[in-house]
Simulated assay, not measured.
Amino acid sequence: MNEDRPAMIESRLRAAMTVDDLEIVDDSHRHRGHAGARAGGGHFRVRVVSPDFAGKGTIARHRMVYAAMGDAMRADVIHALSIRALTPAEANADAGEG
């Protein structure tokens, strides 16, 4: 089931907003034995770049991502989701720092 979750995350984000770039990392293996992992929930890191984030603060951006995930944000599907939500300009500035 875990291998289907990144595809589900991508599908939901792309359906809910304009996505210029998306990276999804499944960190579930790093949380074996954790209460949420025992319930079957996955741990994921998401870096999403969208012009839809322009003019919005971090909390509003995270709310947009959580709204896109909807009912998947249950302990048995997605237990933990680390979000990095950037506008295209912020992503370009990030790339220039490396």
Rank of each mutant, 00 (worst) to 15 (best):
L22P: 01
S11A: 15
A80E: 02
A15Y: 07
E97T: 14
S28G: 08
L81Y: 10
S11G: 13
I83K: 06
L13R: 08
A16Q: 03
E97I: 14
L22N: 07
H34Q: 08
H62G: 13
A60Y: 06
V65P: 06
M8Y: 12
T58H: 02
V48R: 14
G98P: 06
V48T: 09
L13V: 00
D26A: 08
V49A: 02
A85H: 05
R63T: 14
K56S: 14
A7Y: 15
V19D: 01
G40I: 00
E90T: 03
E10T: 15
G57W: 05
T87H: 01
A67I: 07
V49Q: 03
A15K: 12
D21C: 05
F44S: 13
E10K: 14
T87Y: 00
V25M: 11
H79Q: 05
M1H: 14
S11P: 07
E10V: 14
A67L: 05
R84M: 04
S82R: 06
P88D: 02
A60H: 07
S28A: 09
R61W: 15
L22F: 09
M1R: 11
A72W: 12
S28V: 04
N92A: 09
R63N: 15
G57Y: 04
H29M: 04
A15T: 13
A39S: 06
K56E: 12
D4C: 11
L81C: 10
I83C: 09
G42N: 09
R14P: 02
I9G: 01
P6E: 11
V77S: 13
I78V: 12
F44Y: 14
A39M: 05
M73I: 12
F53R: 00
E10G: 11
A54G: 03
G96V: 12
M8G: 09
H62M: 12
T18D: 00
D71H: 04
L81M: 07
V25T: 14
A35F: 11
H43T: 09
E10Q: 14
G36F: 03
H79D: 06
I9S: 01
F44P: 05
M1F: 13
H62Y: 14
T58G: 07
A85D: 06
G96D: 15
A91N: 04
I78C: 07
M69D: 13
F44K: 10
R30K: 12
D71P: 11
F44T: 06
V46R: 09
G36S: 02
V46M: 04
D94N: 13
R30H: 10
Y66S: 15
A54M: 09
F53Y: 04
F53E: 02
A68H: 06
L22E: 03
L22A: 09
L81V: 06
G57P: 08
V19C: 01
A39D: 08
V25C: 10
M1Q: 12
A93L: 04
M64F: 03
I24S: 04
G36W: 00
S50Y: 00
A75F: 09
I24N: 08
P88E: 04
